[in-house]
Design a protein around this nucleic acid. Structure first.
Lengths: 193, 193
DNA sequence: GCAGAATAGTCAATGTATTGACGAATTGGC
DNA sequence: GCCAATTCGTCAATACATTGACTATTCTGC
C-alpha cells in the first residue's frame, strides 16, 4: 500500500476523468450487489438516486427560476404556501415547508424586508400571522409559473401515467413517515449512540 | 382587507394548527387543478413531492446516522464514493457527488483534519489524489450500514417491485438531464433575465 | 521552445441554515 | 389568583455552501 510511484501510469487507470453522477449510483448498485440482499439494494439505490435528483433539481430551480427574483428555495416555498392558505402563523408555515421555526424566522425577516409579506401579531399574542403583500402575490405567481415549466422540463422523459404513479409513490412514503415522526421531531430519539 | 379584529374568531379558521407537510402538497394539487392542465399538475406535484421527501430524508439521515460520526451529507457522499472508486482526484469526486470543486475542497479539508482521508499530489501536479485512511474506511462502512437501514425504513411502504420501478424512473430522469446539462453547468445559460 | 488559453485546487467574502438560549405570553394544576 | 411548565418567536454563535478571484500547472498553436 506504499505508493511511492515516480510518475508512472498507476494513477490514470483508477481515475477515468469522465465520471458522472449517474455512474456513481450505477457503481453503488454493483457494490451493494456483492454485499447485501436485494431489498437493501433497491432501497438504498432508490434513496440515493432520490437525493441526487433532488439536489440537482433544486439547485437548477434556484439558479434559473428563484434566484433571479431574489428568492431561495425556502423563500419560494413560503410564498407558495401563503398563496394556498391565505394567512398562516409562522409555526404552521415552518411545519408546512419542513424547516425549523428559527429558520422560518430568518426567511420571513428577508421576505418582509423585500416587501413580499407582512407580519402582524395574532390573537394569541405570542404568534405572528403572516400574509402576502400584493407584490408578494405577484412574485409568487411568476415564480410558480417558472417552477411549473421547469418541473415539466425535468420530468418530460416520464409519461403522463408514470408521473402520476411516481407522485403517488412519494406521497405514500411521506404519509407513512408523517405518521411516524409526527410533524417534526428535530433530533433526539432517546437511545442513539 | 383591513383586519382590525379585536380578538374575535377570524384568525383560527384560517390557521387550523395541525397542518402537515403532506397537506401542503395535497392543497397544492387542488390549487393547480383549478388553474392548469393535467400535465402541469402531475409534473409540478411530482417535483414538489420529490423535493419535500428528499429534504426530510436527508435531514433524518444526517441527524440520526451521519452527524453522530461527525459527518454531514456531503462528507458521507465523499467517503462512500471513495469506497467505490478506491482513489479519486478531487475534481472527479466533486462531479460524482454533485457539488462544486470549491465545496469539495472544504469538505476534504475537514475529512483530512479528522484523519479519514489523505491528499497526495497526482501525476498531473495540479491535481490532488484522494484516498481513504483505515479510519476513513471504517467510518464509511459504519455510516453506509446506517444509511442502508434508514433507507429501508423510509421506503418500507413500497413493495420490492415498486422500489425497483421507483429507482428506475429516477435514473431515467437523471440520465436525460445528464445528457443536457453535461456534468455540471453551474449557473449561466446565456439569456436568463 | 514559448506565449496564451485552459484547468485544478485553494482562499476570501458573503449569505444562509442549524443549534442553543432567551424573553414574552399562554395554559394547567392547585 | 398564582406558580410551574409549555409554546412562540427572536437573537447569538457556529458551521456550511456558494460565488468570485487567484496561483500553479498543463496543454495548444506557432
Amino acid at each position: 500500500m506504499t505508493e511511492e510511484s515516480p510518475a508512472s501510469q498507476d494513477v490514470p487507470p483508477t481515475t477515468p476523468r469522465a465520471i458522472r453522477g449517474v455512474d456513481f449510483t450505477r457503481a453503488s448498485a454493483d457494490h451493494f450487489a456483492r454485499k447485501f440482499d436485494r431489498d437493501s439494494i433497491s432501497a438504498s439505490e432508490a434513496s440515493l438516486l432520490l437525493l441526487r435528483l433532488a439536489t440537482l433539481l433544486q439547485s437548477d430551480a434556484e439558479s434559473r427560476v428563484h434566484r433571479p427574483h431574489g428568492l431561495r428555495w425556502t423563500g419560494f416555498s413560503a410564498l407558495f404556501a401563503l398563496t394556498l392558505f391565505d394567512r398562516l402563523e409562522a409555526r404552521s408555515l415552518a411545519r408546512i415547508i419542513g424547516v425549523s421555526r428559527q429558520a422560518i424566522s430568518l426567511v420571513l425577516t428577508v421576505l418582509e424586508r423585500d416587501g413580499l409579506i407582512v407580519r402582524t401579531p395574532g390573537a394569541d399574542r405570542r404568534t405572528m400571522v403572516i400574509e402576502l403583500t400584493d407584490e408578494g402575490r405577484r412574485i409568487a405567481g411568476v415564480t410558480l409559473d417558472g417552477q411549473i415549466a421547469l418541473s415539466q422540463e425535468w420530468l418530460e422523459v416520464l409519461s403522463e401515467e408514470e408521473k402520476v404513479v411516481f407522485a403517488d409513490m412519494i406521497r405514500r412514503v411521506l404519509v407513512a413517515r408523517a405518521d411516524r415522526v409526527r410533524d417534526e421531531e428535530p433530533t433526539s430519539p432517546p437511545s442513539q449512540r
